[in-house]
Amino acid sequence: MYRIVYNKLICNNTYELLVEAPLVVEKCMPGQFVIVMSKEDSERIPLTIYDYDKKKGLLYLIYQVIGASTEELSTMKDNIFGVVGPLGNANEICANVDMFKGKRICYVAGGVGIAPVYPQVKFLKEHGFDVDVIYGAREANLLLIRDKIEKVVHKISYATDDGSFGIKGFVTDVLKKNIDKYDIVVAIGPVIMMKNVVLVTKEYNVKTIVSMNPLMVDGSGMCGACRCEVAGKPKFACIHGPEFDGFEVDFDLALKRLNVYKDEEKEKWQQMKKILEGGK
């Protein structure tokens, strides 16, 4: 059991969960993720690490309620059954700051993708980098953790689909205009956004790192559910990723593979809603 400090709604269907998990945060690095389980019989949910306090052993996570298991997680109050991690590899830049000194870096985040972007930008600031961020969402009130991210960026630009904050348009519109300023782009968000970012960066041959979020079961390399096609070869996001060279990822395949369990998930969500209503 892992003690919940808080598990609160921060916007729309998005929650912030703070949980005690000292063994997870002791060694964690930006870019890594964890798997959480609400109860003993729950699904294993992979979530990217958003923030951590190594001294206090606290782990910060942000998640969106998008199905049965995240719905269940949002109802957890005192403890959750499981947190395992850190899983996957650290972000390439954060893990090799000396190699990347002097590089001009831009992060592109979409929606809750800002959560895994935040610890990377914060880490890089602490290591002397000035990092720009382009952050997009459908509308203004879906932009998350603005106060936190603004404290660690060099410059941040916003884009919303409806123009309710920042420019009206997509993150790629902002990126296109500024692409000559950067040596490296890191894109984290919906697969379609990462695909579109790579379409821009590839044209200008700017190295691009993306973070994949496929379906996953064990998270330790045992099952292969999370495989992505990278440079024509299957790679496991849990062990070989979650970050890959954006030029090499087959995004169309990744998009299709996200739908593997769509029907089953719909059904489970209905079941879960009934269970949760019954419990009230």
Partner: peptide
């Protein structure tokens, strides 16, 4: 360790699974 795949075309299709995944679920 990691489940092996054959390396053939179409192996990353939506309903291609490792036996480990099916059994783990």
């Amino acid at each position: 360790g990691l489940p092996r795949f054959m390396g053939i075309e179409g192996e990353n299709a939506n309903q291609v699974f490792s036996a480990n995944e099916v059994l783990t679920r």
